Amino acid sequence: MFNDELVLAVAKDHPRIENSISSEQLFLESHAVVSLDHKGSFSKPYYQSTESIQAIAYESTDMNSVLSVVSQTYFVAIAPRWLVQACNETLNLKPVPLPWENAKRACNLTWHESTDRDKGHQWMKSLLKQFSLSM
């Protein structure tokens, strides 16, 4: 559907991270992630190396729980900018740019095949297709 800009979500009072982070420092921090073995894990593509996997301190089944833990600890999480900004006041978070050139991820919409017969889903899919073709 679109490309999400990714950032590092950190607590506003994080003692080591101000407004930027280096590649070297990134995986020295403790990370909170969406479970890597969960089908469709948001985090899995960013944790492929031994160094990055060893940085994982907390796993959850959803991004909202991950961000909640990050807001109450000095853990960090890779997350979509829009989500960190939407939660930045209620969860005391701030977005920090990632140290990679291309910090984007494709956002896709998926649904179970059993919805193919549902009239409401057929209507929604038709609208989404029309919208995506007009862009």
Rank of each mutant, 00 (worst) to 15 (best):
Y47E: 10
I53L: 15
V69E: 11
F42D: 04
G120A: 10
D37K: 11
L93E: 04
P95N: 09
Q54C: 12
W82T: 05
K125Y: 02
I56P: 06
G120Q: 10
T90D: 13
T73W: 06
S41H: 04
V34I: 10
M124F: 10
V84N: 02
I56E: 09
K129C: 04
P15V: 00
F2S: 09
H38R: 15
F2A: 07
V70Y: 02
C87W: 05
S68H: 11
E101I: 05
S132K: 10
L128T: 01
E101N: 15
A55E: 04
L8F: 01
G40Q: 04
N88V: 00
K119T: 06
H38E: 14
R117Y: 07
W100S: 08
K39N: 11
D118I: 11
Q130M: 05
L128H: 04
V76Y: 01
K12E: 14
R117N: 14
H38C: 05
A79H: 06
N88P: 00
W111G: 13
V33N: 02
E18P: 02
K104S: 10
L28S: 08
I21D: 04
A86P: 01
L6Q: 03
L98D: 01
S35E: 12
N64M: 11
A32T: 07
I53C: 11
V69I: 15
P45D: 05
Y47C: 05
S134R: 08
L98E: 00
F75W: 07
K104W: 00
D116T: 09
P97K: 05
A106W: 02
E113I: 13
K94E: 03
A32Q: 06
M135E: 15
V76D: 06
E59A: 13
M135N: 13
N19Q: 15
F27V: 06
H31T: 01
W100Y: 15
T50Q: 14
V70A: 07
A106N: 08
Y46A: 07
D116V: 09
S23E: 12
D118Y: 03
Q54N: 15
V66T: 10
K94A: 08
L36N: 04
K125M: 08
Y74H: 10
D37Q: 12
Q25M: 15
T50F: 12
K12V: 08
S35P: 01
